[in-house]
Amino acid sequence: MHQVMIHPASYDSLRAAIDRAFDLFPQNLGGKKVLIKPNVLRGSEAAEGIVTHPAVLAAVVDKVETLTPASIVVGDNPGLFSYGANEAAFEQTGLMAAARGYYRNIGLDAVALPFHNEFMETVNVSRAIVEADIVISLPKFKTHGLTVMTGAIKNSYGMLPGAQKARLHRLAGSPSRFHDAVVEVFKLRVPDLFIVDAVVGMEGNGPASPELREIGLVLAGDNAVAVDAVMAAMMGLDPGRLRFLRRAAEAGLGTWNLEEIRIDGNLVPLDNFKLPPLGGEAIQDNAAVQDMLESKTRLTPRADPQGCTACGTCVEQCPAQALSMPDDLPQVDIDLCVTCFCCQEICPEKAMVLT
């Protein structure tokens, strides 16, 4: 039977909740590569509640440091509005300082992995995630206009660097198929531990809604389906109505049935919690949002001849081998480019631009 922890906490007093999470779901970290992944949707102030609060990240990093020595990396690939700005997003949110020196721009190096043929034959996943022995995911307790809620499963969407996220949005074509795509991404590298920042949550039309909710909790578990089922119940949802939870359960990734989940703590639904439309139509039928997604998927990298020094770093690091160097200037093969934008992020001269 899966177990989910629900523990009282504030941003000033997180240690008891984090200690309890590691007691309930112990991780063998000795000599291991540990990747800690917060939810960094975009650059914002911590008080906006859009990203995992830096206090939660700092508490988890501090806890991991006290355990058997391990190699720690903190990183994420921000969402649609922050491509190529990983450092800036971490700095603005306060997560850079919270990373305690372990931050790495994991968008700079990616590995091509087989994906679901109904969407894309391959996707690029940050190498630091693929090669980690232990992945600790730190989702934010939030709503989402397309998947209704974003938690343990949806946080793994940040494994994909660059505009692949927008491309999958577009290729999905409907809210239900996007739910399926989210599960397929999650399956690429299932994290080992989930610690959810529910001290201050978000309701309304997330994932960047101004409507915040004081909740005062930290959730944790080692099974994402169970964690998300508990989050859904707290939001007043029937977990079985969420397609991504049903699909994850069908794939053998866990259960959303609350009768089969042991709760460490008290599961109490939040009064009058504001939800987006259950089917995701608020985003799918929004012409402005669809135009934005399409514009992101049309972006391609191009070398600025004024700034490029022909060092070849972009060619060497392109995971899709879509770059070549004729006449001392990188050229992009559009047919091979998977819009991960690793070249833009890794360029030492910042000479790769998106057009």
Rank of each mutant, 00 (worst) to 15 (best):
H2L: 15
P8Q: 13
S13M: 03
A16N: 09
D19Y: 00
P26S: 00
Q27D: 07
G30F: 10
K32M: 03
K32Y: 02
K37T: 08
P38T: 12
V40N: 05
S44T: 12
E45R: 10
A46S: 14
P54Q: 03
V56W: 03
D62P: 11
K63I: 03
E65W: 00
T68Y: 14
N77R: 00
L80F: 15
A89W: 01
G94K: 04
A98L: 07
G101K: 05
N105E: 01
N105P: 04
G107L: 00
V111P: 15
N124E: 07
R127M: 07
I129G: 00
V135I: 14
L138N: 01
L146C: 04
I153M: 04
R167F: 09
L171P: 07
R177F: 11
F178N: 02
H179F: 14
V182P: 04
F186K: 11
K187S: 15
V190Q: 06
P191W: 12
D192H: 15
L193N: 10
F194I: 14
V200D: 14
M202T: 01
V218R: 06
A220Q: 03
N223W: 03
A232E: 11
A233G: 12
A233I: 11
L237Y: 10
R241S: 09
R241G: 12
R247E: 10
T255L: 03
W256V: 13
L258T: 08
G265S: 05
G265C: 03
G265F: 06
I283Q: 10
M292Q: 15
R302T: 11
Q306Y: 14
C308R: 05
T309D: 07
A310R: 01
C314S: 00
P326Y: 08
L329A: 06
Q331T: 04
Q331A: 09
D333S: 05
V338P: 13
V338H: 12
Q344A: 01
V353K: 04
T355W: 14
